[in-house]
């Protein structure tokens, strides 16, 4: 299975050179730690803004790791080989997105409850937070792949990727934070979770095509 081999390759690269998802999680933890320094340590205030802050921290940590998604492969020529291989480039992109999510989105699911604890998030909203991150972060990797592919051939694409991708992240962020906030107020979180999942499901078939088309430009 070349598809699984691609995922395994990207995971191996991530674990051997970048410490797996450790750096992304470290960024997430530090970013969430900055919140009490910025707004003050009042428990009521922190527990009110915790869902949104955790989501913003998750989004930023996903954004920061996007530049490694295609850039290194485009620079050292691996992407040319992958594009020439019998596997469609769309599937290559999808494999890279899955590997990216496994190393950035998935570890966040484990780190988020700990940070929620320090931010005094209400206990009732823990399940909704885990569910919203599990449903929403795959969309971040998939949509982010579009921005990463558009800027893959550039020397300084980092800031541009952020400018292109952040507006696209807005619906995911709004729905994810709404789900957690709703559960904190004893309202059903399911509608927001379903919409979050809908974005991920819509991005799953669409984003790889756009990203692959943009990648073909970068290696042309």
């Amino acid at each position: 299975m070349p598809f699984l081999a691609l995922i395994r390759r990207d995971l191996a690269i991530a674990f051997r050179t970048g410490g797996g998802g450790a750096l992304g999680v470290a960024f997430f933890v530090i970013a969430a730690t900055l919140v009490p320094f910025g707004v003050g340590p009042l428990p009521e205030l922190l527990s009110r803004i915790a869902p949104g802050m955790l989501w913003i921290a998750a989004l930023l940590s996903c954004l920061l790791t996007l530049d490694r998604l295609f850039q290194a492969d485009v620079e050292d020529g691996s992407m040319d080989v992958l594009a020439l291989s019998p596997v469609p480039l769309e599937l290559v992109v999808l494999a890279k997105c899955i590997a990216h999510w496994l190393t950035t989105g998935l570890p966040l699911l484990l780190a988020a409850p700990v940070m929620a604890l320090t931010l005094r998030m209400p206990e009732v909203s823990y399940p909704a937070m885990i569910a919203s991150l599990a449903l929403g972060t795959p969309a971040l990797s998939l949509i982010g792949a579009i921005g990463a592919a558009l800027t893959a051939g550039m020397r300084r694409g980092g800031v541009l990727t952020a400018v292109l991708v952040l507006p696209l992240y807005v619906p995911t962020l709004i729905l994810g934070a709404l789900a957690v906030n709703a559960s904190a107020m004893d309202l059903p979180a399911a509608p927001y979770l379903m919409l979050s999942g809908a974005i991920t499901l819509a991005a799953l078939p669409l984003a790889p095509f756009v990203a692959a088309a943009a990648l073909r430009l970068a290696i042309r």
């Binding site: 579009i146 558009l150 800027t151 051939g153 550039m154 694409g157 541009l160 400018v163 292109l164 507006p167 756009v210 088309a213 943009a214 430009l217 042309r220």
Partner: peptide
Amino acid sequence: GYIALWDAFDDTDKAATATSYF
């Protein structure tokens, strides 16, 4: 973002295609 993406490419054809996707 669209304007910035146009400016980021040296090659007009590449820029045209990339910005169209965006």
